[in-house]
């Protein structure tokens, strides 16, 4: 009987203790913030996002060499890079941010943020810190395709143009190589025949001129 009453009193008192706790908390200030009105950067405990915060990726194209390290480092294959070699006959002479000569055009640099897992491995792999995390985390959208972000500075026509220039250069080089080959063959033939030395020397000078034009 005493035990029975004890249990009732114990149960009742623990409930009162719990009610005391909630009553005290009723008058404590709130710890939440109203998110879109108050930016979460000012939430309790930290006044800014940490330096290494991993949010949306950003690519600084002038820094990017097109080495594809990030593409290889990505565990979910969300980065797609396509590079086009800078043609030597291109009138545009691109430079890197540090003043060095650019080797590759970034004809395609896509990051699919629907796939990205924000592990940060690409930023570690990048030798020139071209791919970095920004502080932007509010990029939700209604269409999944909007999450596929193109970082390449070129549009499709420009990419086609650059590819055309490169193809032209390749073609020219091939022609030159062919011409060289033909000239060499011809020279060899002529040496074999050793008929008219004057005529062959004329041919050689014209071939030299061709090479000089090409290299310019």
């Amino acid at each position: 009987m005493i035990n029975y009453l004890k249990n009732i009193i114990k149960g009742f008192s623990t409930i009162l203790v719990g009610m005391k706790v909630t009553f005290i908390n009723l008058f404590r200030p709130n710890v939440t913030v109203q998110y879109p009105n108050v930016h979460p950067l000012v939430r309790a405990g930290s006044d800014k996002m940490p330096d290494n915060a991993r949010n949306k990726l950003n690519v600084i194209i002038p820094k990017c060499t097109g080495c594809k390290s990030c593409e290889k480092a990505c565990p979910v294959n969300c980065i797609t890079i396509e590079t086009t070699k800078v043609a030597s006959i291109d009138t545009e002479k691109p430079l890197m941010e540090d003043g060095k000569k650019r080797v590759f055009w970034l004809s395609q640099f896509d990051i699919d943020f629907a796939k990205c897992c924000f592990c940060g491995l690409c930023t570690i792999a990048c030798p020139t810190s071209a791919i970095v995390h920004s502080t932007d985390f509010e990029y939700s959208c209604y269409d999944r395709n909007e999450l596929l972000v193109h970082f390449s500075p070129f549009n499709k026509e420009q990419v086609a143009e650059k590819k055309r220039i490169l193809a032209e250069e390749v073609k020219q080089k091939a022609e030159k190589a062919l011409a060289d080959k033909q000239a060499a063959e011809k020279a060899a033939q002529e040496q074999n025949i050793t008929d008219s030395k004057i005529k062959s020397s004329d041919d050689q000078t014209s071939a030299n001129q061709n090479i000089q034009n090409n290299s310019n």
Binding site: T22, N25, L26, F27, R28, N30, V31, T32, Q34
Partner: peptide, 13 residues
């Protein structure tokens, strides 16, 4: 509101 204040929230605002 009471639930929110007990739980250190703001409730509907």
């Amino acid at each position: 509101k009471i639930a929110s204040f007990i739980q250190l929230k703001l409730g509907p605002m």
